[in-house]
Amino acid sequence: MPASKRSAPTRLLLDLYRTMLRIRRVEERLSALFADGTIPGFIHLSIGQESVPAAITHHLTNSDTVAITHRGHGQALAKGINLDAFLAEMMGRASGICQGRGGSMHIADSSVGMLGANGIVAGGIPIAVGSALAHQLDGEGNIAVPYFGDGAIAEGVFHESLNIASLWNLPCLFVCENNGWGEFSKTDDQFAGNLKKLAATYNMDYQFIDALDVVKLSNLAGRMVKAVRKTSRPAILECKVTRHHGHYEGDPQKYRPEEELNQLGDQDPVSAAYDKLINGGVTAGELTELDQQIQAEIDASVAQAIAADHPQFEQATAGVYA
């Protein structure tokens, strides 16, 4: 089928697929670069969770803000962070988006509405609520999106954030990427309540969705983003996702049931979208070409990052205060 004759749903799916695949390929590259020592420290990959940021940011503008997590590469890429500057940051280069000072857990690009990634679990949530307050005061219809994991729900500051967002009618869409794990602990053993009841308690809309189907997720996210924008009432969107890699790269995952690990292939939003595209008449050749384009973009970005200069210490010391 010629690309111009494609149905709107197929075009949407292709768009979301492109975003997801790009995240997937970047994460895979980061995994390799971490394994060979090019990237230091520790990194948390979002492989298996790509559909959430792809779907959410599909409905956001650069003026909408997001607070992202330690597992935030996909959230950053979907929001539009520059790939060269992103990869250079991973490698601690001067041309990195944070001049090499932050690394994987602290990527931020204010030009595309990123409030910054956080190494503190739940740390970004109240900051996003504060950003929602700024949006409310500006009155331009922008919204804030704090991403958080299921582990963050136990932090008191999350509950405080729900309260104030509701009390003050703040335009804030709380997006939970629930992968069932907080590090090596099952969230079912760590949190006694559930988000649905919390949302009811704080008098806000709540929706749950399995993030395997990126189109369904996108449609739901679209409705919710619109409602938050229009009514300035906060809402919670809980997305069930599957973490394909360890908590951090190098995590041997001994705590994880073998059964769960064996089923990862069935819990892959990228390959699910691929199958749907093929069924919708997109050719395998076209998708291979898309993949190659993405890989070429990443190759070039990685090469420039590796070749980039290291930051100067004196410049960093001078950057502590504004």
């Binding site: 230091p40 420290g41 601690g92 690394g103 290291h310 930051p311 210490f313 960093a316 950057g319």
Partner: peptide
């Protein structure tokens, strides 16, 4: 340590 946050990059932390 100097009066700055601990930086991430290998080059910066080596001099820290």
């Amino acid at each position: 340590a100097p009066f700055m946050p601990v930086p991430y990059s290998v080059a910066l932390e080596a001099e820290f």
